[in-house]
Amino acid sequence: MSEEKELKPWVKPALEFGPVLLFFIAYGRLKEQQFTFGGEVYEGFVVATALFIPLLVASTLILWKLTGHLSKMQLMTLVLVVGFGGLTVWLNDGSFFKMKPTILYLFFAGALGFGLLRGKSYMQVMMDSALPLTDEGWMALTKRMALLFLGLAVTNELVWRMLTEDTWVKFKTFGMPVIMFGFFMLQSGLISKYSTEEDES
């Protein structure tokens, strides 16, 4: 099995977050407009979604080409974006794309919870052991991640169902990444406590 190729630090975040940022920009420019294709009228949100799908596919393929590797989370995200984004465009209904984060986070919360019940950390598998943690550390982090994913799923549902479309787009583009970043910053104590780096040195 080939090892993941190293990239410059900015390349992977740019490929992962770039399509999301471009979706936000496209939505901002198109949200007040309507477009007619084949006799069907499409709102700007649906058109922005239609543009986002090939962008994400292209960026994911580029990332795979550059690294020779894709994580399970990246693959699952790609499948759901193509599936739910495709339904949004096909049925001309933006609710499918808005539900995508809920389904994704519920899937991960359920998978992690199932692993915990079996005494295993699927988080360690999903992250390809990217963090140098003991088995006990992975179990503790997995419990926290399962709760985080569950919380994000519930929050996404509340935001898209109860607030405006603009609010959801901003939450999806900036709110969720900030929450994830903040969560991992708060895990510094756990990572330090269960780190295996000293054992390997």
Rank of each mutant, 00 (worst) to 15 (best):
M1E: 11
S2G: 12
S2T: 14
S2N: 15
E4V: 14
E4D: 07
K8I: 11
W10M: 03
W10F: 13
K12C: 01
P13V: 02
P13D: 05
E16V: 13
E16L: 10
V20F: 02
L21R: 03
F23C: 06
A26M: 04
A26K: 06
Y27V: 02
Y27A: 06
G28I: 00
K31Y: 01
E32A: 04
E32V: 04
Q34K: 01
T36L: 07
F37P: 05
G39A: 09
G39R: 05
V41Y: 02
E43L: 05
F52A: 08
L56V: 13
L63C: 11
L63A: 08
K65P: 02
L66R: 12
L66Q: 06
L66V: 02
H69T: 05
L70I: 00
L70K: 03
M76R: 14
T77C: 09
V79N: 02
V79C: 10
V81G: 06
G85Q: 01
G86Q: 09
G86H: 09
W90Y: 10
L91M: 09
L91E: 08
L91G: 03
G94Y: 07
F96K: 00
K98V: 02
M99K: 10
M99S: 13
M99H: 00
P101Q: 13
T102F: 12
T102V: 14
I103C: 13
Y105K: 10
A111Y: 14
L112E: 02
G113L: 13
F114G: 13
F114Y: 14
G115Y: 04
G119E: 04
Y122D: 04
Q124G: 01
Q124V: 02
Q124F: 00
V125I: 10
D128W: 08
D135P: 07
G137H: 05
M139Q: 12
A140L: 07
A140D: 05
R144I: 08
M145H: 01
M145E: 01
A146S: 14
L148P: 01
L150S: 15
L152N: 08
L152T: 12
V154S: 08
T155Q: 06
E157H: 07
E157W: 05
L158P: 10
V159M: 01
E165M: 13
W168F: 15
K170E: 03
K172H: 12
V178Y: 08
I179C: 03
F181D: 03
F181W: 14
Q187S: 05
I191M: 13
S192L: 05
S195A: 10
S195G: 01
T196Q: 02
E197Q: 14
S201P: 01
